[in-house]
Write a protein that binds this DNA or RNA. Structure first.
Lengths: 194, 194
DNA sequence: CTATTCCTTTTACAAATGTTAAATAATCAG
DNA sequence: CTGATTATTTAACATTTGTAAAAGGAATAG
């Protein structure tokens, strides 16, 4: 495999989290499919049940949904980030959320059912995904904490510190809804802190 | 084991999620310790690194922390609910959160390091905890969604529907901070919808 | 290059929520 | 049972955030 092969790169990132045997790596790589999506396209659409796990190889994407006709961004994903519609994937119910690219993006797509079957044979692979889940869970708890008792300005400051790439590259309207405020409000905040 | 043995009861709930062999059940039960805590006591305190996984056997508890001297409730747990300080447990860092009982409560305590060691031997046990983690993760995402773009009144209505036991049994000040508002605000909301 | 579209800011006003303090109501310990 | 403590509500006012509309900037397609 070439060094810049995206699947090889993903496996390298995985091995930092959980050591995988060459056999598991091979079986896992067999499931992976590289997907190229142009900017502003939906990778998965609302109403569909999620059965695929994605990693961003290059580019950026978001999970969003509509709350009373308003576009709300729930999550941003950049290189090597996992992007899944967790509720739908784990419960088997249709998702009211969609995944959309923010620029031309290449993903690695892993169909969940055969992946979950591999878990039976390869304990380490299941452990890897348990650890990825732990990481996502902790991140979500931290965001919850931030939404629960920080002011909008504090949340924006936190985002600028923790994810400067978001503030640099993502349209403000998406950042606003991600922070749980309107874009007008975010503009005001930016005006006062600059 | 008697039918009302709390560990037996927990194992029964576990088997509904993931089938466990008698051997795993035995090994797991060996780790469990029953803990009785009086009302309003801290089970785990702020600053300590979390290395224990708890289940509520009977009673109720909350996870809370201080945000600028204000007591903020992050999570409520009732019978059969898992209660862990996830960030600390999964990262090994000291927690800025504490666990406190809301009434006289009995817990089942499971020390995490030996549990994680059992995962090496018993694949099914790791899978059980992966599934429990999935469930907690989905719940947290749903709460995030609620905090991100629902009004305080909508969040209170949702809570009354989804967890009437919380509204019935928990002091309003804890519910208010759980919803991300002040108790004054919650009182106002209650006055308008009654 | 230009026109169009989309993004961001600004303004003025409305609504929701926070703050502080006081008044009730409920609970608890002795 | 009673006084003390704790919980909840109410009030008045301040602050934050939302809404709608308009104006200015930036990006994009042809």
């Amino acid at each position: 495999m070439p060094v810049d092969d995206p699947i090889a790169r993903l496996l390298k990132a995985f091995n930092d989290i959980q050591n995988l045997s060459p056999e598991v790596e091979y079986q896992f790589a067999e499931l992976c499919k590289k997907i190229e999506v142009k900017k502003h396209q939906n990778l998965q659409s609302i109403g569909q049940t999620c059965r695929t796990i994605y990693f961003v190889n290059e580019g950026a994407a978001r999970i969003y949904y509509y709350k009373e006709d308003k576009d709300v961004t729930e999550y941003f994903a950049f290189e090597n980030d996992l992007i899944i519609r967790a509720e739908s994937l784990f419960t088997g119910k249709p998702s009211h959320k969609a995944i959309q690219t923010l620029k031309d993006t290449s993903f690695i797509a892993i169909p969940a059912p055969p992946l979950f079957e591999l878990f039976d044979q390869y304990h380490d692979l299941e452990r890897l995904f348990r650890k990825l889940l732990e990481k996502s869970y902790v991140e979500t708890i931290n965001r919850l904490e931030s939404l629960q008792f920080q002011t909008a300005e504090e949340r924006y400051q936190t985002l600028m510190t923790k994810s400067p790439v978001v503030v640099r590259e993502i349209p403000l309207k998406h950042i606003a809804s991600y922070l749980g405020i309107t874009q007008v409000s975010l503009s005001r905040i930016r005006a006062t802190i600059t």
